[in-house]
Amino acid sequence: MTALGILTPATVREVAPQAVPRAVWRALLRRPAARIGLALALLLALVTLLGPLFTADPDLPDYADQLAPPGPVHWLGTDQAGRDLLARSIAAARTSVGAALLVMTLCAVVGVVVGTVSGAVGGRLDTVLTRFTDILLGLPTVVLTLAVIGVLGPGFWNLVLAMSATTWAPLARLARSVARGSAQRPDVIAARMAGVRPLRLALGHVLPATASQVLVAATLGLAEIVLLLGSLSFLGLGAQPPTAEWGNMLSTGRETFAYAPWQLVGPGLGLILSITAATLVSDALRDVTDPGRRT
């Protein structure tokens, strides 16, 4: 099918750019701030994944031991139902960080799909999608998220959906510009000359390049997503009790704060540490990948 023998899919793949540039990792690891951030993220991931093996049942009430102060049995104390706060804080990390990663991934997927289709297909579809993206970009995200929750009603999944639905626009814009740029890339030109059909061209050649760039850009927003998810859950718009989540733990802990202030330690630290990790890594990542705009 190819007139030129050299333009087989295998050669095309070889010319394609590396998905995760190793140079970025190396440059990232040279920065102390990034190292601290990555170590913190690793620590949080370990505690979140392995912690439940060593802690008590986070949902098991013990009405004989309500609002116990921190001690050898309950390291962070207990809440008003006598549940172990350390166990709950760790269980909450799964909900909170999991939700944030989910929102990030959903945004990246929507952004990549919309942007790639828009940039690779072009024409009227591109105009419509770009207009829509531009309108979303011109609106305040938090306010839109609140409105969408108003439609869907409060709840964990509704909050995840609402945030994803309102936050993907910048990523779509990035994906579109990468997709348009990659039309000029040697491997894409070669593939097109080899007779690869437009859809496969978009999915097999343009998409991988946009996806890796968009994923990097998406991680830059992770800190903000964790923060917003926590704030909205604190307002009772996200995961509902008894599900443990940092935001709703803070809001229930607040009721008894006056005589049991340790209620806030676990969820508060969890939020602060995870936001710190995400901020340190994303700042360094931004410096490394986009030297023109240092922060």
Binding site: A223, L227, G230, S231, F234, L250, R254, F257, A258, P261, L264, G268, L271, I272, I275, T276, T279, L280
Partner: peptide
């Protein structure tokens, strides 16, 4: 600035209200 960025406003608000005011 980093400290101001990573401590969520509502956490700080709760602390400020309960510690300073109450």
């Amino acid at each position: 600035a980093l400290g101001m960025l990573v401590v969520p406003g509502f956490v700080l608000g709760v602390l400020a209200l309960d510690v300073l005011v109450v």
